[in-house]
Design a protein around this nucleic acid. Structure first.
Lengths: 333, 333
DNA sequence: CTGTTAGCGCTTTCAT
DNA sequence: ATGAAAGCGCTAACAG
């Protein structure tokens, strides 16, 4: 028995109308007499007809699917964004093709190309560092792009973020105010403009406002994971720091656990403020004071912005900055 | 300026060959004289030609994309599976359309239908409970399906899992051996066959082997999240249990923290074994002893199995059971 | 309100 | 080894 697909043609024949009419009722075009619509609908039901989205895509040049380039779905931070993206996508009848890049330049370019080949209607990009090549592809292609939780120093495409600079400044300030002279700045690669430009800038501003000299030895780069946090212990302790602003929760909790496991009292002897307010920061004991970013919303708003772009609507502002907070928990005094 | 897409036709004209030939070189068909191939390749390069995957999909009836139905990507358990799936998919030149269902019957059916409409070549389904309707759709459609970390009591489609029954039995046994007479069984909905059938069975077997009567009052159903774990505290304490096997890490850590925050010593006064060995179980203090499931591998193997199914290869076994472990940490004696 | 007619860009026999 | 031509299933003018 063959995989006999029934097409719009079959429906048209059975309903004794033209393909165009069937197409109209399928697409909810109002220009169809109720009686005809009903008749067609019945045949569709009876034949169990399902429009072929690929054919539709070829004919209409719209696939109702968007590409999402993500460093790693299994990272809680990005997974939250992804969830926000998918929910809004679903709301607007889009599907998402999810592709992991590991923040790797080559993979990013590859995946971008296959996404473009698949004629996605738009792209949401999450990544630490926009390479020239990627930016070139973005501007060359006519496909709308939105950066979620990522910065393009050149502002060519839309983006949704929080004000990392101000948030880091606030956090650093709090740590200084509570008496810490040496506050460590712990982030991911400084090549990522979020770290190297925005966060670092906020950190330095806080120091300056409090007349503290910037000390290179208090700046640490690490990968965003628990083990990296554990591994940081000795270096941080040796730096003489008595507090730290950390750019990632896993990293922060790793540092925290290595500290407490070694008998250091947190927050009495060492204070920590982290950045994502994820479950990790709640689960840890002591729980970790954190900047709160509306992760789900960053994803959701990105997708909403993308729908506008795909729809060629007028955008009042293509770079959206969402509000952040500072949630006090047990790792600060 | 228009979005002037260059097509296979343009390439054919410029290279002075037929579309068929261009198609052949693009698809790596060996029946092309090296000289012609070279010539065509140069034109492709020069024109920056990119084959349109949608057109290709319509003509060949293959989209090289698979649908992935997932309860929630922002759940660490499922996110790990998803990562394994995507990596193997990429390896075999597939992309994944990721769709969140929240384990909701209606959403599952909807999303399945749009996936089928989009002509995905295969589907990977993760969900707690296969409804009749979904199973009906599965068997009616000719599209290959694989269940990842989910059970179909009827075994109609392929699946990849661990032996939940044996794993739960092992965990329960350890708890009993170390002196606990009352071991709580804490899982998600018992409607999910993994919980209601497999895990519960393993739990009961362990009791039986140790001549302990099954006590309904020690069985708890809860949602798989941290708050649900916190909320469970009173009921578990009142049940008289001195240990628990928990089906989810967030749940387990929630219970753990509510216990320790209330002054109960773990593991001295209460022992806990959880099920996913995720980062949560490492971060908690005390860290939580856990069954270890090869999450990434479950995803990866599922996708590998699906490629075979899509390729109509012979399958030795369409239900794959992967090995599990039991990782001793600080929450058990 | 409904039908006709071209394609959309590519794969795939079938010839040659 | 290469070309010609017929679709794949649907949308979108354009008529009427």
């Amino acid at each position: 028995m063959e995989k006999q697909t029934i097409t719009i043609y079959d429906v048209a024949r059975e309903a004794a109308v033209s393909m165009a009419t069937v197409s109209r009722v399928v697409n909810g075009n109002p220009n169809v007499k109720p009686a005809t619509r009903k008749k067609v609908l019945e045949v569709i039901e009876r034949l169990d007809y399902r429009p072929n989205a690929v054919a539709r895509g070829l004919a209409s040049k719209k696939t109702t699917t968007v590409g999402v380039i993500i460093p790693d779905v299994s990272n809680a931070y990005f997974a939250s964004l992804a969830r926000g993206i998918d929910d809004v996508a679903t709301m607007y009848k889009y599907n998402i093709i999810l592709a992991n890049s590991d923040g790797n330049d080559v993979k990013e370019v590859n995946v971008l190309n296959t996404l473009l080949a698949k004629q996605v209607d738009g792209i949401i990009f999450m990544g630490h560092h926009l390479t020239e090549q990627i930016r070139g592809e973005f501007s060359r292609s006519k496909t709308p792009v939105v950066l979620a939780g990522s910065i393009d120093p050149d502002n060519q495409v839309g983006s949704v973020n929080i004000d990392y600079e101000a948030a880091t400044k606030d956090a650093t300030n709090q740590l200084i105010k509570s008496g810490n002279k040496k506050v460590a700045f712990i982030s991911g690669s400084l090549l990522d403009p979020i770290n190297g430009i925005q966060r670092l800038k906020g950190y330095k501003e806080a120091l300056k406002d409090n007349n503290i000299d910037f000390n290179e030895g208090l700046v640490f780069e690490a990968e965003y994971n628990y083990k990296a946090g554990l591994a940081l212990h000795d270096r941080v302790v040796n730096s003489g720091a008595t507090a730290a602003v950390v750019a990632d929760d896993e990293l922060a909790v790793g540092l925290l656990n290595s500290l407490t496991d070694n008998g250091v009292k947190v927050p009495e002897e060492f204070e920590i403020i982290t950045s994502n307010n994820s479950l990790f920061s709640d689960i840890a004991r002591p729980s970790v004071t954190s900047i709160s970013q509306p992760l789900y919303d960053i994803g959701a708003v990105s997708m909403r912005l993308l729908t506008k772009l795909m729809n060629k609507e007028d955008i009042d502002e293509k770079d959206i900055v969402l509000p952040y907070g500072l949630i006090q928990k047990q790792s600060t005094k």
